[in-house]
């Protein structure tokens, strides 16, 4: 990623594959890619990529004709160029190739050291599921289902609607939709334009307002490599028990079991009074099995500094409930591996 214009080629840098469609002046027509916590390519399909390609070719042809040329076919242009080397910590401490995920990691570290780290910044590229939309995997941006009582349902979006725009962003793929949501920082709503089937007549455009709920951006972070650079001072080293150790500890499969191997002083462990050897078996009453990264992800989804954290641990065979404040953001890291 060395030297790449991150403002123009903005994508979810924790992912391993991303495509862009542009004109010769590097104006962006569409983005294709993105993933979720389940798999790296579960949201891609040959059919949906072909849909996006065909829609881009139609838009490109339209823009080549003076009578139909419109910037509305293009995604909003970045204000200015920015490269990985513009991140001071990266420039000072990184050598060799810059991996995609390192962009996200250095940005998190830089914002912490600049005193600007915000929890919202780590929940990038919200899933359409977050606003109650499931897109048809074979199409990409046609609504397959709408979750009852969700922002999409309350706004009036319906199965079969083809989303073509979110505010000023033309949508030709699910990733376009996610990028449009990603850009929403302060606002609590967006206007979605969709084409709706009208019987034997041509589809008609409809405008729908999506009002977001408070935690609408929050998604699972456990799969993200950049999670390791989030300035969350756990205050302990640990791991999720394997099957053999579970049997020894008489814990059933499927139950949360994070073993505290050592304490690092302070942090969440210090605030809660965790001890070496403790087994964390529940977080805020939730006890389903998770990896340590998924556990960290859950902490970040639920709590901000100062919030009261509640853990259940097994210590010397006894169950204990520990409570204490979520610690302030902190890290001594200034570079990433």
């Amino acid at each position: 990623m060395n030297g790449v214009d991150l403002a123009r080629f903005e994508f979810d840098y924790d992912t391993t594959w991303q495509a862009f469609f542009l004109d010769a002046n590097l104006n962006v027509y569409s983005r294709y890619g993105g993933r979720d916590e389940k798999s790296a390519d579960g949201r891609h399909s040959v059919a949906s990529l072909q849909h996006t390609m065909n829609e881009v070719l139609v838009a490109h042809e339209r823009r080549r004709r003076p009578e139909s040329r419109s910037d509305a076919d293009l995604q909003p242009a970045p204000r200015s160029k920015t490269t990985p080397e513009d991140i001071p910590l990266l420039k000072a401490g990184h050598q060799g190739c810059v991996h995609c995920h390192q962009i996200a990691e250095y940005r998190a570290l830089q914002s912490f050291h600049d005193g600007k780290f915000s929890r919202d910044s780590i929940f990038g590229f919200p899933l359409p599921d977050n606003v109650g939309i499931n897109f048809d995997l074979a199409h990409g941006h046609r609504v397959d289902a709408v979750v009852p009582e969700s922002p999409a349902a309350k706004g009036g979006l319906a199965p079969g609607d083809v989303v073509t725009r979110v505010d000023d962003v033309p949508v030709r793929s699910e990733q376009d939709f996610r990028w449009a949501l990603h850009r929403v920082v302060e606002k609590r709503s967006v206007v979605v334009t969709a084409l709706r089937a009208a019987g034997s007549k041509p589809s008609q455009p409809v405008s729908i307002k999506l009002d977001f709920h408070a935690d609408w951006r929050k998604t699972d972070l456990g799969w993200r490599k950049s999670l390791r650079s989030v300035p969350l001072p756990l205050g302990f080293l640990g791991y999720a028990l394997g099957r053999e150790e579970r049997r020894t500890a008489k814990l059933p499969d499927g139950r949360l079991a994070i073993k505290v191997v050592s304490l690092r002083g302070g942090g969440l462990a210090g605030n809660l009074g965790l001890e070496k050897g403790d087994l964390i078996v529940s977080l805020a009453g939730r006890s389903d099995e998770r990896t340590l990264d998924d556990f960290k992800s859950d902490l970040l989804r639920r709590y901000a500094p100062g919030d009261k954290v509640r853990l259940t641990v097994l210590r010397d065979g006894k169950s204990l409930e520990l409570t204490g404040p979520f610690p302030p953001w902190d890290t001594t890291d200034t570079s990433v591996p």
């Binding site: 990623m1 080629f9 862009f20 469609f21 010769a24």
Partner: peptide
């Protein structure tokens, strides 16, 4: 090379398909 691809796009009139992969 992005610059050369953009030049080819300009000459051919075709849009660009840019892929980043790890």
């Amino acid at each position: 090379n992005l610059d050369r691809a953009a030049q080819a796009s300009r000459e051919s009139g075709k849009p660009l398909f840019v892929v980043f992969r790890c």
